[in-house]
Simulated assay, not measured.
Amino acid sequence: MPSFTVKDGTEIYYKDWGDESDPVVTFSHGWPLSSDNWDSQMFFLASQGYRVIAHDRRGHGRSSQPWHGNDMDTYADDLRQLFEALDLRGVVMVGHSTGGGEVARFVGRFGTENRVKKAVLISAVPPIMVQSETNPKGTPLAVFDSFREAMLKDRSQFFLDVPTGPFFGFNRPGVKVSQGRIQSWWQQGMMASFKGAYDCIKQFSETDFTEDLKKMDIPVLVLHGDDDQVVPIEASAKRTIELLPQGTLKVYPGGPHALPNICADEVNKDILEFIKA
């Protein structure tokens, strides 16, 4: 099981598929999931001649469960150390939801140098989720407080309620519900450390990525569903595209938050076309 140890002793698990000589695409997952949520995209791109790498963020999946360091800067630092350990260059970075924030913070902290050439943000949390005077279309803080309360009360049930409802859009009339997807989400979420998942709620909701987005001086593809109930498009993608120097926005009509899962074929096609452009 491939893994490496970062400077504070945390062990980070990662998947590395394809040939080492192939162009590299990295994947950063959403909360509270793991690299497993990228399997469709990874298998597709690896079959198309790409080397695909996805890690389990600290406190998530098969990585260590440290008490400290569950913050966006450290997430980006961990990923940077993975890039260095594997000597990754000319990478296309892909991030979903919280992972989109991780990609933005990575570029904001370290620049692109010769390591990053393009990025894809899918249903991503930037520029900032929480509502404020300067972000009136954001989500009220009380919503994220309710997440924390639900975790403390009954994490296992909360981690069933999220995928059963808004994450996949299974709460919409006439939508075909996949019990397998619900169980997979629950399993991935329950693998996360309680502390890591709890801390990450603050990180994905209250971190301001505005300056990070401005520093992303590379082509960036933004994919977002207009029925995203978790990260509503008006406060996220439509603001993000105004901040990116070289951004392209594609809106998925009726698309839920879980675009990589529910709209996998279209997402795979869009990523591949963007990489090749």
Rank of each mutant, 00 (worst) to 15 (best):
T248H: 15
K215R: 15
V230S: 06
G247F: 15
T207Y: 15
V222D: 08
D226E: 12
G254F: 14
V230H: 08
Y252E: 12
S236D: 04
A237C: 05
L244E: 08
R239C: 06
L243V: 08
M216N: 06
L244F: 14
E211P: 01
S236A: 14
T207M: 09
L213C: 02
G255F: 13
K202F: 12
D208G: 00
Q203V: 14
L243Y: 14
K215L: 15
L249V: 11
A237T: 08
E234N: 01
S205D: 06
R239I: 05
L221S: 10
G247H: 13
G254M: 14
P253R: 13
I241F: 10
S205K: 12
K215T: 04
K215G: 02
L249N: 13
G225C: 09
F209I: 03
D217P: 08
A237Q: 05
D208K: 06
G225R: 07
L213K: 01
S236K: 05
L223Q: 11
T207R: 03
Q246I: 06
V231Q: 05
S205T: 09
Y252M: 13
L249Q: 02
P219L: 10
G254E: 09
H224W: 10
F209D: 00
Q229H: 14
E234V: 09
L221P: 05
E234G: 04
M216W: 10
D226Q: 09
I218E: 02
L244S: 10
T210H: 02
P219H: 11
I241G: 13
D217F: 07
I218L: 12
F204V: 01
V231T: 14
I233A: 01
D227I: 10
E242K: 10
V230R: 02
E206Q: 15
E211N: 05
I233C: 05
R239K: 15
F209L: 02
H224R: 11
S236W: 05
Q203E: 09
D208C: 02
Q229Y: 12
L244Q: 08
V222E: 08
T240D: 00
V230C: 12
D227T: 08
K215V: 07
E206S: 04
D228L: 01
F204M: 06
V220H: 07
H224G: 06
P245I: 11
